[in-house]
């Protein structure tokens, strides 16, 4: 019988997903389509933010939305009502989207017809952080009622995002949410992250967000 030997692997656990994500990113660059992966816990305001984003940017960019939802089409109907193309991925019990699912969802779009596609990921702060979807950037929303301690509980999510939107700032006076403490905690995990305070209800801060995003898209289109 052969002796037991140690075989070096040194490969990422999710290497298949990572490879698929990279090839998707290459295709997006070719087509000049900026793919944004939006993550948050359920109820933090993903759909509301997407609607605000469409309203703010639809005159400048051709926008599509890939909606992941456990088993309903409520969100995609709301988005479609804003005049953007929405495709619904029914994820069943899946807790996250991976590159293969996003790739399948994007088949419903002709990428050449879109400047921006927003993925509304499954509402969850744990699993989506682990899986590269092939997007150009990751964004997350944390809403004020969730509390300023979330970076302590879900550090990975805060470390993989380029931008954090702190939503529902209209609740700030009503809670003990400490914005300064939140920012310090997030910046320790991710010094490069941009933090933008918004309220999808009142519209406060939405201009700063759409400016960040439109600068990103313009820069992306220029570079590729």
């Amino acid at each position: 019988m052969d002796e037991i030997r140690l075989i070096e692997i040194k490969e990422d656990i999710l290497s298949d997903n990572a490879a698929l994500a990279s090839s998707l990113r290459e295709r997006l660059k070719e087509k000049k389509t900026y793919l944004l992966n939006l993550m948050s816990s359920p109820g933090a305001g993903k759909t509301s933010l997407i609607i605000r984003t469409i309203q703010g940017l639809k005159d400048r960019f051709r926008i599509g939305v890939l909606e992941a939802d456990i088993d309903s089409i409520v969100d995609s109907e709301k988005v479609a009502a804003q005049g953007a193309r929405a495709v619904q991925l029914k994820t069943g019990g899946f807790c996250h989207l991976d590159a293969a699912m996003v790739n399948a969802g994007l088949a419903a779009f002709d990428l050449s017809d879109f400047d921006l596609i927003i993925i509304e990921n499954v509402g969850n702060l744990v699993c989506p952080a682990e899986f590269d979807t092939g997007s150009i950037r990751n964004a997350m929303i944390l809403s004020v009622p969730e509390g300023d301690d979330k970076p302590l509980k879900y550090p990975l999510m805060f470390s993989v995002c380029s931008v954090l939107l702190v939503n529902k700032t209209d609740y700030l006076g009503l809670s003990d949410f400490d914005m300064q403490a939140l920012k310090e905690r997030v910046k320790k995990l991710n010094p490069e992250i941009r933090i933008i305070e918004v309220s999808c209800k009142t519209g406060e801060g939405i201009d700063a967000w759409t400016k960040w995003l439109s600068d990103e898209i313009s820069e992306f289109i220029k570079q590729v």
């Binding site: 002796e3 037991i4 140690l6 075989i7 070096e8 692997i9 490969e11 990422d12 682990e130």
Partner: peptide, 12 residues
């Protein structure tokens, strides 16, 4: 702190 890989395996 963000590592996520397979180092090696013991096999025959």
């Amino acid at each position: 702190g963000r590592e996520y890989y397979i180092k090696d395996m013991e096999a025959q």
